[in-house]
Amino acid sequence: MRSTAPTFSPLYRQIKDFLIASLERGEWGPGDAIPSEGELAQRFNVSQGTVRKAIDEMAAENMLVRRQGKGTFVSTHSDPRSFYRFLRLLPDDGVAVPSVSKPFFCEKIPASPEVARELGLRLGDPVIHVKRLLSFAGQTVVFDQLYLVGDLFNELTLEALRAGERSLYSLFESDFGVRMISAEERLRAVAADAESAGHLGVDVGAPLLLVERTAYTYGNKPVEWRRGLYCTAHHYYRNDLG
C-alpha cells in the first residue's frame, strides 16, 4: 500500500491562514489597523519577513491595504477606491461616472436548483432575491438580479436597500458583517427577454451582455450569486489583465 504524503504548507501561508481566521472572527473589522509586522512576528513566533510575505499576499488579494507611513488596514467597501473593483462597465469615452442604484424588489424565496448549486446550498434553502437597476448619467444600463444566502441576510429589506447612497457591498459589510473578498464571473451574449427589455428600454431580442457573478467572503464561502444584464449600446465591459 502506498501512503499518501502529507500536504506541505509554507510557513507564510500558515500565518496567512491565521490572519484570515482573525478577520473572520472579527478581531479586526473593516477599516481597522492590524498590528505591525513586528508585533505579529512576536505573536506567531516567526520572522518579520514571513509575516510580510503573508501580508503582501493578502494585500494583493484585496483583504488588506497598506498605507504609506500609517500601517496596514483591513480593506473596506466603504473606501471610494474599492468602488470600481466589482463594477467594470464604462461609457464609450472611457470616463468613469458614478452609478445610481435603484432597487425595486426584495423577497425571501426557496433556492432553485441553479441558485442552490451556485451558493452551495440545499434545494429549497432560503435565499434573498433582489432586483435592481443601475443607471449612469441618467441612462439605465444594468438590470441586476441577486440571490443572497438567506441565513446571512435574513433581515434585508427593500427599505434598507433604498436608504442612503452606500453601495450594496458597503451595506452588506456594515449592516450584516459580510465582506465580499473575491468573485468569479462568466460572460456571454444573450437576447433581451420581455422583462429585461422593459427595464432597459430596448427591443425584445436586442443583444445584451449577461454577467453571472459568484461572490465569496472569507474562507472562499459563496454568499451571493448575481445575474446582471448589461446594455452595451453606449458602454463596454473592461477588465484589466495584469
Rank of each mutant, 00 (worst) to 15 (best):
D240N: 00
A21D: 13
E61S: 12
G120A: 13
T232A: 03
F8H: 08
V115W: 06
D240W: 11
S101H: 15
A191D: 12
M63N: 12
T7L: 09
F153C: 11
V65F: 00
N220F: 03
S196F: 03
V142G: 04
A183F: 06
A160R: 15
F8A: 15
S135Q: 15
I181Q: 15
F104H: 10
E212P: 04
L134I: 01
Y230V: 10
G69M: 06
M1W: 09
S167E: 06
H234A: 05
L19Q: 10
L146S: 07
G242N: 01
V130T: 14
M180Q: 02
L23Y: 06
G164Y: 04
L241Y: 10
A111G: 12
P91D: 09
T76V: 01
V223P: 12
A111V: 09
Y216W: 00
R166M: 13
Y218N: 09
F172V: 01
V211C: 13
P103D: 02
K131M: 13
R166H: 14
K102L: 02
L87D: 13
G177T: 11
Q42K: 14
L119A: 05
L89A: 00
F153L: 11
H235K: 10
L119K: 06
A5N: 08
I20H: 09
Y236Q: 03
T4S: 08
H199K: 02
V141P: 06
L40Q: 00
Q48I: 03
V202G: 12
S82I: 03
S47P: 14
S135I: 05
A194F: 11
E224Y: 03
E37Q: 07
L40T: 00
I109C: 14
Y236A: 10
A163T: 08
N239E: 06
R25C: 04
Y236S: 07
F153I: 05
T7Q: 12
G201N: 13
G49I: 07
R226G: 04
H235S: 14
A33F: 00
R166N: 15
P126T: 00
S82K: 12
L158F: 11
M1E: 03
E165F: 14
Y218G: 07
E107F: 02
P113A: 14
S174I: 05
L123P: 06
R13W: 03
E39C: 13
L90M: 05
Y218A: 12
F8P: 01
L119Q: 07
I181C: 14
E61G: 09
Y230I: 08
V204S: 09
L121D: 01
I15R: 00
T4N: 04
A194E: 05
I128M: 14
E195A: 08
W28I: 01
Y237F: 13
V149E: 01
M1S: 05
L87T: 08
R88M: 09
F86H: 02
T76E: 00
F104A: 10
